[in-house]
Design a protein around this nucleic acid. Structure first.
Length: 231
DNA sequence: AACCTATGCAACCGCGTTAGA
DNA sequence: GTCTAACGCGGTTGCATAGGT
């Protein structure tokens, strides 16, 4: 199948960010006339650009029912849950989140949620615990070990040593919690019991990346959590 | 203050699907 | 049934900006 030729034949194709003026023109036109044919729309709406671009701008930013702003915890949970069931079907996922567009969800997933799951030790593609092949946890442990040694020794004389041992204790507790969560998470996954069937409407209880996400959110629901993600 | 790097988000591109001639 | 134009989706790119050096 040949890809859409769209309006590439036009050398004067307008690309790049939309200006306020162009947004107003496009919005006014669609409100007054409907979009009709997207291909014909650019000239009619006053932007000498691609119909695809107009459609994209309208469906993702100008539509009146678009909800802008930060995703709520509940929305995050829904996205993770649906992603574990549907995969990268962003438009399908978007139908469960009124006011959110597939593009917005996709971007949010790639920039925030993926990282969160990786930090939790969950593979964002399979939603299963991933084997830790990276060395970060070893670095974590070596740092904690060193700090713990300092903390337990009688040589802890400086305020720095004291602060470090306190941080180490907090870090060790956090790591222990993570490991506990991962163990709990892995138990049903690694058992011989087959996962129960589930309908697409009712999200599976076996999509437990959301369960661990919930537990994680509870644990990390303090001011340190925000900085933790930004390493 | 200037430069570099990382991050987030808006936008584009290519391909599959659909509808209609 | 076939062909083609148009639409819609998902992956990717590129720009703006914040933060770090």
């Amino acid at each position: 199948m040949v890809g859409s030729p769209c309006c590439d034949e036009e050398n004067s194709l307008k690309k790049g960010r939309w200006t306020m003026d162009e947004d107003v023109k496009l919005t006014d036109y669609i409100r007054g006339n409907g979009h009709g044919s997207w291909r014909a729309l650019p000239k009619l709406a006053g932007r000498n650009g691609c119909g695809k671009s107009c459609r994209f701008r309208w469906t993702n930013y100008l539509r009146p029912d678009i909800k802008r702003g930060k995703f709520s915890k509940e929305e995050e949970r829904v996205i993770i849950n649906l992603h574990s069931v549907l995969g990268n079907k962003w438009s399908k996922i978007a139908t469960h989140l009124p006011g959110r567009t597939d593009n917005e969800i996709k971007n949010y997933w790639n920039t925030h949620l993926r990282k969160k799951l990786l930090h939790m030790g969950i593979d964002p593609n399979t939603h299963k615990p991933r084997p830790r092949t990276d060395l970060n946890h070893l670095l974590d442990f070596s740092w904690l070990l060193r700090a713990a040694i300092v903390g337990n020794s009688n040589m802890m004389t400086s305020p720095w040593d004291n602060a470090m041992s306190l941080q180490a204790a907090a870090g060790a507790a956090q790591l222990a919690k993570m490991q506990l969560l991962q163990c709990l998470y892995m138990m049903p996954v690694t058992s011989n019991q087959p996962p129960p069937a589930f309908s697409s409407a009712a999200v599976s209880p076996w999509t437990s990346s959301t369960a661990i996400f919930d537990a994680w959110e509870k644990l990390m629901d303090d001011e340190t959590s925000e900085s933790y993600w930004k390493d």
